[in-house]
Amino acid sequence: MNLLVVLPILVALGALRLLKAGLLAWMIALWMAIYLTLRYGFAVPIPASVITLYMGITTMALATYVLSSRERFASCSRPLIALVVERRLRTLLIVVVLGLPLLVAARIYTNMSQPLQPPSFARTVHPAPPSEPITVRGQTFDLNAVENPFRNLEKSDPSQFRVHVENGRRVYYQNCVYCHGDNVQGDGLFAHGVNPIPTNFRDSGTIAMLQEGFLFWRIAKGGPGMPGEGGPWESAMPAWENFLTVDEMWDVILFLYDHTGQRPREVEEHAK
């Protein structure tokens, strides 16, 4: 929820309440309030198609309320009739009559002047790792079986484990932060310049559902090692095996899970 948007809306509605606004004003205000909340009130924006759907339902519900008794209908239609027949409101009427078509025209104009967008592709965000063992800095790793060599320290030697996590933190903030961001949410300084966007590690759909071996593979091989189904765009992630040691990569993995409070997916027992 975006409080900067929601709070002013609530204040405005409260003000209407104090002013004892008429039914028509309330209906218009509620409609706009709901629209603004849906459009701007959410931290993650709602797709336009869903907003259209919700506003349709809102319109129907408000119309139902107005129609639900004669008094309500009358108190809503009275100002409208007054607007059309009364002399003193003539200027307002002219503004409305001219304004409505202009609004429609403006809407169509904004709809039509959208920049060209590429069609959406069904992109595999987490393509399957290669089945053959991979070679990193001269060592071979079987991704289906590999485990983080420092993971067991968590129980056997917590203080040593913290050392590795802290080393991972250093590695992260020296290398990864530019894209993956201060809060490991995939919103670093460079994030907006790359496509596909950097992974948000706080999202429960990312590292929590992956094994540590998968992370190791992605970090070591980066964008150049991405299989075809990860396309159609090339990931901008460097192949970190050229810059980091194997231990540093394992440390940064420990840090990511530790920092986000997530647990890696266990390695499956294949023999089952």
Partner: peptide, 29 residues
Amino acid sequence: LFVIAVCFAVWATPRSPITTPVEVREMGG
């Protein structure tokens, strides 16, 4: 009416809505 409208909206919410690529990017999926 409020309860009915909210229930109506929940029921009509699509599982994977129609989106433009920009929106997908903003939603992250």
